[in-house]
């Protein structure tokens, strides 16, 4: 497929995933829209272009792995998994309900195919990703590991412990992504506990860094392609994004971190996405 055909196809999937996110959250009555919408394009790129994986055989040994370290953004991952064929689309409507496999934060033990590990307590995903990547190397399996973190999440010390270990062990089959939407719960990252300058920090920890617009499909695909070529060090993509991307009233609005839209608000949101 030509580059622009490919990005067009992925952009369309991302639009559908965003609609799913809004529909899921309205039905659940709670959840986290902002970070799911900001990271949506990155997850779509991974599941529908970048990663080698097999929805019919989720445990395939050679698969690339995705760790959603910022577990609260799981509605986007759930919608990607369903659209990729891991489970029926209808199941998305059970999000956060009793008995559901789609738990409020990703759960490995509730039987949802495609979930590598439970997350939700921020800061832990990169260490897990390191372990998987090292294990794959030991087994001489050429698969890659992707770990998506929040820009608030990287305030967690454990992230930097993991960052140090990844470069120490030259984990080049690992690619981190920081969803740099500039917001956390209490305010902007600069007000609350600034992780800036983000790129320089990762560089200082020995990482290869790539800075992109994380809501532009072409740039996302190029960055992942470049990451694959980097040897002897891990790569992190600093993806500048818009929190709440695609829904007019949620964009860059700190209050849309962790609440569901009302039915009325959802109508407006879906209309925004319809015309995007």
């Amino acid at each position: 497929m030509k580059i622009n055909e490919q990005t067009k196809k992925l952009d369309e999937i991302a639009r559908q995933v965003r609609k799913n996110i809004i529909e899921m959250l309205v039905q659940a009555g709670s959840g986290h829209p902002g970070g799911a919408l900001s990271a949506c394009d990155i997850m779509v790129a991974l599941y529908f272009s970048v990663m080698r994986h097999n929805p019919q055989n989720p445990q395939w040994r050679e698969r690339d792995r995705f760790i959603l370290s910022k577990g609260h953004s799981c509605p986007a991952m759930y919608a990607c998994l369903a659209r990729a064929g891991y489970f029926p689309l209808q199941e998305l409507s059970t999000l956060r309900k009793i008995g559901s496999r789609l738990q409020g934060h990703p759960s490995k033990t509730d039987g949802l195919p495609g979930i590598e590990v439970s997350t939700g307590s921020l800061g832990q995903g990169l260490s897990i990703a390191n372990g998987i990547a090292l294990g794959l190397k030991l087994d001489r399996i050429g698969a890659r590991v992707y770990c998506l973190m929040g820009d608030g999440e990287i305030e967690e010390g454990q992230i930097w412990e993991a960052a140090m270990a990844a470069s120490h062990y030259h984990i080049d089959n690992l690619c981190g992504i920081v969803d740099n939407n500039g917001l956390q719960i209490d305010g902007t990252i600069d007000e609350i506990m600034s992780p800036n300058p983000i790129s320089e920090k990762w560089k200082a920890f020995g990482w290869n860094t790539i800075e992109i617009d994380g809501n532009k499909m072409e740039e996302i695909l190029e960055a992942f392609a470049e990451a694959k070529t980097i040897k002897r060090k891990p790569t992190v993509i600093i993806a500048k994004t818009i929190k709440g991307k695609g829904v007019s009233f949620m964009e860059n609005a700190v209050e849309w971190h962790g609440k569901a839209p009302s039915k009325e608000q959802a109508k407006v949101a879906l209309k925004d996405l319809e015309s995007s």
């Binding site: 659940a28 009555g29 709670s30 959840g31 577990g71 956060r96 738990q103 409020g104 934060h105 759960s107 439970s118 997350t119 939700g120 307590s121």
Partner: peptide, 8 residues
């Protein structure tokens, strides 16, 4: 806390 599930 309800809907947030086991992690919370």
């Amino acid at each position: 806390v309800g809907a947030d599930g086991a992690t919370h």
